[in-house]
């Protein structure tokens, strides 16, 4: 079910055609999905305070209506652990087109996967699951299922990937916690059924999976143009 605040976010994003990352993350958090701790700020002091309280390095991202694909604009900086670096990057990010605020969030490391959705012309909402990150288009190692999916579907999706051993644990590296990933994908597939008439596509990419978390590190929701 969509909450009132979710609906408000969607209505406010209509004109732009897509939902800004902080708003998309709010929507995901409303569903009970794990998102990184973050602050949205234009203040360097605030950002540094967040860094100090964080247990590890942080990520800084430009938030701009003009920037849909952040890596293309060099609008994401990962692994910041020093105040002076954060300060320098905050200043730089704010010079990017349309960027008024910066998203500073905790950095999680693990297997980068994509959980996506497409509103298919013939089948309606479909879920996409696969290897994520910025190279997703190059490898295109993804599985597709019609939403809503069942737990068994999530397992079969992973089994159909070339990267399935990365999910299951490979060369002593821990795999993904399926007790977290399976419900995430199942609940996400229910969410996109609720959003059926509102979205074109959704990318949760990357979702960073470790043995005890599946964190949505970035989220982009492309909306259906109003008819």
């Amino acid at each position: 079910m969509l909450s009132k605040s979710d609906r408000r976010i969607i209505e406010n994003s209509r004109l732009r055609g897509w939902v800004l990352e902080p708003d998309a993350k709010h929507m995901m958090a409303n569903q009970g999905f794990d998102v990184p701790n973050f602050i949205l700020t234009d203040s360097i002091q605030e950002a540094n305070k967040f860094l100090k309280l964080s247990s590890g390095p942080v990520v800084a991202k430009a938030v701009s209506e003009k920037i849909l694909h952040k890596t293309e604009f060099d609008a994401v900086v990962v692994g910041i652990s020093e105040e002076k670096v954060l300060e320098r990057e905050m200043i730089r990010l704010k010079t990017l087109g349309g960027c008024e605020q910066v998203l500073v969030e905790e950095m999680v490391e693990g297997l980068e996967i994509i959980i996506g959705a497409k509103n298919d012309f013939q089948f309606g909402p479909v879920v996409v699951l696969g290897l994520g990150g910025t190279s997703v288009e190059i490898y295109n190692d993804t599985a597709i299922r019609m939403a809503p999916v069942k737990y068994g579907d999530v397992h079969s999706m992973i089994d159909s990937l070339k990267a399935k051993n990365l999910f299951k644990g490979y060369r002593k590296k821990p795999g993904v916690n399926m007790d977290l990933l399976a419900p995430l994908v199942v609940n996400f597939s229910c969410l996109i059924m609720d959003l059926e008439d509102k979205f074109q596509s959704i990318d949760l990419n990357p979702v960073i999976c470790t043995k005890d978390r599946c964190v949505i590190a970035d989220a982009r929701i492309m909306l259906e143009s109003e008819t």
Binding site: K118, D120, Q122, F123, A143, R145, M146
Partner: peptide, 16 residues
Amino acid sequence: SLAGDYRVFSQIMKQF
């Protein structure tokens, strides 16, 4: 009739 994305079709057929 319009053809859709074939990968979507194919994988959904497998799913069901």
